[in-house]
Design a protein around this nucleic acid. Structure first.
Lengths: 161, 161
DNA sequence: GTTTTTGCAAAGAATTTGCAGCTTT
DNA sequence: AAAGCTGCAAATTCTTTGCAAAAAC
């Protein structure tokens, strides 16, 4: 990723931070930088370790808080189903997943077309390919219904305590 | 899923169990059944609760043990990256993931084609779609290298303690 | 100066493990 | 009878939270 891109994203986060009326602390700034610069998708601990090198005075819980706060603003996403417990999949036939971002419901669906996707050459540069699966994130009908019957519109945070 | 399919899978697990020289206990049988019958992808707790209804004498740790044992034999898979801690993704541009099944390394890749996949109609029946992403599982080059330098061929379990 | 954040340490949740006793083969 | 399982309870690991002190606006 080029330096420009990084600065741009960094700027976006700082901007979002003040837009949200939150304070710009050195901890947050360093966490932002780490989040923006990392190419892999780090967990809280990794970010903590890296930030720590530059800012000895940071704690793991601040990293967690900041990360989830960013996630709440939609500025970072979490990889995989969610921050849930490990889910198991006994479907050994080729299939794809629909994951509800609200409740974590995971359902399979099938598609011949999706079974045989062409991947870009760049993937081979990362590693050898074993299995390819499409993951659709969305909101399941049950959660959509649940939403309808809730308060139509307040200014509080939406759903999912 | 039709009854035939279920019985077939059930049979496969029981067979694999005895092939592996493991014992057929009532707990395992009920856990197998739950795993095979579930349409969503349950976590250990869910399976525990359901098995419990039919077999009061089962414990959560037996469920865990059985599930991971099945996973070790490749008879069930885990959904998402792995049994790892939550990973964060600050890449807000449209992208796809390569995940190393050995070390959990997660890297982004890009493809216009994959950005606009056509999903089968069946997906809409599950819920509303927000985002679609391709997840490629494989082994990253670093892990492949690591493997080469290890004992070429024993009969012990491969890598990753 | 006020309000938000932080760090600490303790609380919680999820998952794993040692061990004695019970079951399966 | 022998070897493998199971359940319990304690240990780990990961993550969150309450609160007083410190920092940002």
């Amino acid at each position: 990723m080029d330096k420009n891109e990084i600065e741009e994203r960094m700027h976006a986060l700082l901007q979002a931070c003040s837009d949200a009326g939150a304070r710009l602390t050195p901890q947050r700034i360093e966490i932002f930088r780490e989040v923006v610069e990392s190419e892999e998708h780090p967990d809280a601990e990794m970010i903590y370790q890296r930030v720590r090198e530059r800012l000895a005075t940071v704690s793991l819980d601040t990293v967690y808080r900041t990360l989830w706060w960013l996630a709440g603003l939609g500025l970072v996403a979490t990889v995989g189903p969610a921050k849930e417990s490990t889910r198991f999949d006994a479907n050994l036939t080729r299939h794809h997943h629909f994951v509800c971002v609200r409740c974590g419901l995971t359902r399979d669906f099938y598609s011949r077309d999706l079974d045989n996707l062409e991947l870009p050459a760049s993937v081979a540069a990362i590693g050898s390919i074993e299995r390819t699966q499409v993951e659709v994130k969305g909101i399941c009908h049950a959660c959509a219904e649940r939403q309808k019957s809730e308060v139509p519109a307040s200014q509080g945070e939406p759903g999912q305590a």
